[in-house]
Each structure stands twice: as structure tokens, then as C-alpha cells.
Nucleic acid binder design. Sequence first.
DNA 1: CTGAAAGCGCTTACAG
DNA 2: CTGAAAGCGCTTACAG
Lengths: 330, 330
Amino acid sequence: MAKVTSADVARASGVSRTTVSYVLNATQGVSVSDATRRRVLDAASRLGYAPSAAARTLRRGRSDLVLCVLPDWPVGPAVEAMIDRLADELAGRGMSVLVHHVRGERPLTDLLRAVTPHTVVGLAPFDPDDVRAMRQAGIGVVSTFDDVASGPGATTDAAADDPQRRIGLAQAERLAGRGCRRIGYATTPDPRVAAFAGGRLAGVREACAALGLEPPLVVEVDLSERSGAEAVRAWRSAGVDGVAAYNDEVALAVLAGTRAEGVAVPDGLAVVGVDDIPVAALASPPLTTVWQSLDLQAAYLAACVTAALDGRPQPVRPRQEVELVPRASA
Amino acid sequence: MAKVTSADVARASGVSRTTVSYVLNATQGVSVSDATRRRVLDAASRLGYAPSAAARTLRRGRSDLVLCVLPDWPVGPAVEAMIDRLADELAGRGMSVLVHHVRGERPLTDLLRAVTPHTVVGLAPFDPDDVRAMRQAGIGVVSTFDDVASGPGATTDAAADDPQRRIGLAQAERLAGRGCRRIGYATTPDPRVAAFAGGRLAGVREACAALGLEPPLVVEVDLSERSGAEAVRAWRSAGVDGVAAYNDEVALAVLAGTRAEGVAVPDGLAVVGVDDIPVAALASPPLTTVWQSLDLQAAYLAACVTAALDGRPQPVRPRQEVELVPRASA
DNA sequence: CTGAAAGCGCTTACAG
DNA sequence: CTGAAAGCGCTTACAG
């Protein structure tokens, strides 16, 4: 069967394409008689009419599509929840959300040959060239990545508010608060999240300095008991009695290492993670961790996009909430 | 600045739009003089020209976009890896991959008003109406979901090859193999994955029957120590000495429950999970689990899509590999 | 080797 | 309340 167009529907219902469009889009400000409306609707469903997104987009000059660009690294359920929430919010305005994982090689430009989004939302840092190209093409650009991507151009204020840094602070303060005298940092070998790990470590460093402790002893830990055990040995021989881990998974590897080495937790070595993944509470001992409030950020993201949609100025970013979840490991 | 079109590029480089199109698309079969080519390319980049995806799609009658439709439930890194692999494969053919999480309320049809994919790949079960609408609109439809969605219409052969079932079989066989006499099943309360849980449980049931054991004692376990402990008590009082869990996270909750109840693992209660998530090996004791080979399925998915692209018949689905990862918990 | 022209399917002033 | 017509930006036979 050939593709059904609005002209087919018009013919089948004995009206013009104009009327078909009015009926199918429930256009405001025109009134179509009930009988006509019914005929059109009937014909459309009988023929299995599906409008052409491409034609619609071309004609209107803009699409009903919001594109979320995700980074290369594993984002975790938190970001997915944010996107879900965004999709909910936008559904109310008739917009759809689609997600793209950036792939090392292909530039965003290639993707934009296949799809014309209304606006693109970056959960990953954008290439400046891509941003220029998108703006040039009249595509709205929203980025939530200022904090990590800030780099040398960032203002001091922005850096001070870096949630990554504040995560590290919270970890170190917890360890110091329970009497740790020397702090270790369990970092991840994954280069894709180096920016995050760096920010968190900076926070730990800062807290150590403020508390008059030696700088943290940094050890790379992968997700194996062996790696955790090696790190535990290194820390122990340096007198480290508390460890902040890049995230909960790394913390779990450290915990496995303590078991292998026969080190008691938290008395021999206290451990604190980040994220509060579901299994953190199920660990032995249950893992103390730091949790980032999602709700506020999700609302902010949605607000950014709707502001972009309406051509309003971007809202101010709320301060990221960072909260300690105290359990037995530290 | 107004939107730059190919007509602008043509004017700026003193050629026709035809030539601009030839140059920018590197059209085969026409040769453009080097000087002209250079002029066009220069003008395009100078003006920041970005072609209109909508116009291109409308004109060619098909887009370079493959849409992956993901289910509502958490898919985990395995599926993401499959999609990444698909994207890689398709990039070589100039196609882009976009992902959509189905949202309870909105039908796929709404999304298709905003985007015209070349083909859509379902990692979730499709609504038959949606499938009809897509085919009607000339969109290719590939679904990898036959096995779970099969339902009453499925052939016996397909059911016998259901990987979910074979996961359950592998779990139960491991437990029986190490001497368990009565088997429990830790299922998940998440209704979105009921189909998977059901398939796996069916496999466990079948193995019990074949081995002359009583049917498994099914208990719902959420991701908390309390829930795990309750389940452990229930199993213990029924004489259960081996538990197959819906997945590794649930198994970890059971493990936490054994700790709370002072039950030794694996001697008092053996536990086997599914997925081999990274933290499974870090648990105490390390979690025995069942692992599904991804590679073959990823290749199959990519083959399905490229076959659809080329109008070739769909390849046959390879048998899903299911492998036990023996560790200390069972 | 290059250009004039048609047409993809839709929406929307504009005119009745 | 309804229709004829223009035009969104591109690609591609077709003609030179």
C-alpha cells in the first residue's frame, strides 16, 4: 500500500486539505461543522493516515522535538530520571523527547542532518563548533554542564558552588567528624569521568587543608577485590584510617578489599561512597554515602527547556543539594 | 541572523542549487570541477550552512534515522551497550541512532509526528496498533522482543528457546548440583519486569520438576535488608536451602537478609543471582550468578536493522548464550 | 560539467 | 464554515 497523505484523506472525506489539517490539528480559531469533522476523522483512521513529520516540520519551520545529548560515560539512573521528568513536562506541551548518546567519532552535525530538533539539551559538554552550528540553524541550545566544563574561564563563584567539590567536602567532613586522622581517596581509572573525580577529590583536599589534615592519599581502585585489597594495604601502611571513594561501586571494591585484608570497618578503616545506589544499603557493613538531590535539578532542567521554548531568559541554577546518608561504614 | 539555505550558498558561490547539492552530498556519478567544488565548500562553511533535515527527508522520502524504542523499565548497561554497537555499525552507513524511552501515557504515534525514522527498533513490546501505523507510514519495524512478548500465540519451539527460562534452569541446576534439596525463588515486586521474572521462574519450576524436587517457594523481595531477612525466615522455616533470585540486586538483598538472620552462605542457604553486575563479585560472600552473552545478541540486532535497511529478509535469531559464573554464594 | 524546474506533504494567510 | 494557492528547503531527473 502506498503512503497515505492528507490529500487522500481530503479526497476520501470530500473536503479540502485545508479542512483536513484544521480537523486533525484541532486548530484554534476555526470552527468546523461536526458532520465534516466526523467524516474527516473517520476517513483518516480508515485509511490509516499518519502525517509526515518532515513535511510538517519543514512547513512550520520548527519541530516538536527536544533532543537530549548524553555523554559517553555511564550516566546512571539519576540522569535517566531527569530526562523522564523532562519528557513528562514537555509532553504537556506536545513536545517529544529523544535521546542521543554521543559517540566519540561522529560530530553532532551528522545527527542534525537526520533530525531537526526544536532545541537540544546537553547533559554532556558541547563542542563550541557544534553550538555555533546549532544556533546558526535556529536550534535552541540548553546546557547543564557549565559546572564541570567550566575550566579556566569559570568565575570563582561558580567554582565554589561546584556540586562535585561539595560532595568531596561532605565525604571528608564525615570522616574527620568520626575521628579519622589521615584520609585516603579511592579514585576511578575510568578516564571518561576524570572531570567528576577531579572535582570530588578537590573537595576532599580542601576539607583536609581546612581541618589541618595531611592531603588525601590517592589510590586508583577498579571494581575488583584484588584492587581494593591492594589499595587497603597502601592506605594502612601510610596510616590512613578513613577513605572517600569516587562512588559507591568503588567504595564497595574498597569494602571487599578490607575483607580480604582482615581490616575492620569502620574502626580499622572508615569508608564513604557517593550516589546511594540501591545496593549500598545492602553491603556489609552498610555503606555510608553522599546523595545528590535530583528533584531540584530535574525541575531546573525542565525550566531551562520550557524557557528556551518560550524565548524567555534562562532561570538561575539552583544550588545542588548534597546530603550525607549515614550508615555503618563511616 | 536568518537561517542559511542552500540557495544562499549557491548565490554566494555563483552556482546553482543543483551544484551545491552535488558538492555537499558528494553525489556519485557527477563530477564537479575542483574550482567550483572549493568555492561551494568555502561559501558553505563561511555562511555556516546547515542543511535542513526536514526538507531533505521530505524530498528523499526517507530519513537517515533509526529510532530505538526502550521499555519503561530499567534496562541496564547491557542494552545500552547493544545500542552503542548498533550505532557504530549504522554510522558506517550514514545513519544515526536515537533512543526513546516509552512513557506510559503517550503512544508512539505522537512521537512519529515529530520525527520520521527510517526504521524503528523495539527493545520493548510494541502495541499492535503502533506497528500497523508504522508499516502504513512506510517505516521499517524491527522487534527483538518476540521471546518475552510471545504469549499464548507462541510456538513451542520459541518457548523452549526462551532465554529467560534457560536462566532459571541454570540457576536451579547449580543449586541442585551443590546438594540443595528445596529451592526458593526471590522475585521482584516491580510489575514492569513481571514477564522476565515469570520466564525465569518458569525455568526454575521446570528444573525442580525434572530433578524431582518440590516446586520453588516464591517470595517477593525488595531491595532492603528487612525484606531480605523476612524472606530468609520464610524459606528457612520451610526447609529451603537454596535460593534463585530474579537478579543480582535481589540476590544481594537476600544476602543482606542472611546476615541479619545469622544464616551462613552457602551452607545454610545458597544464593544465585542473574546478570553479573560489577558489584556481584564484591559481595560478601561473592555472588554466584548467571550471565547472558551480549555480543551475539548485539550482532543480531545490528544484522536485523541492516537487513531491514537493505530490504533483505530478517536473519534468524541466534540462541542466547547463558552461562553460570560460579563464586562463593552457591 | 552545470542549471531550470518540478515536486516531496504539509500549513496557513487569504479570499470567498 | 470551507477551499485554492503559495511556499517551507531540499534533491533529482532532465535538458543543455
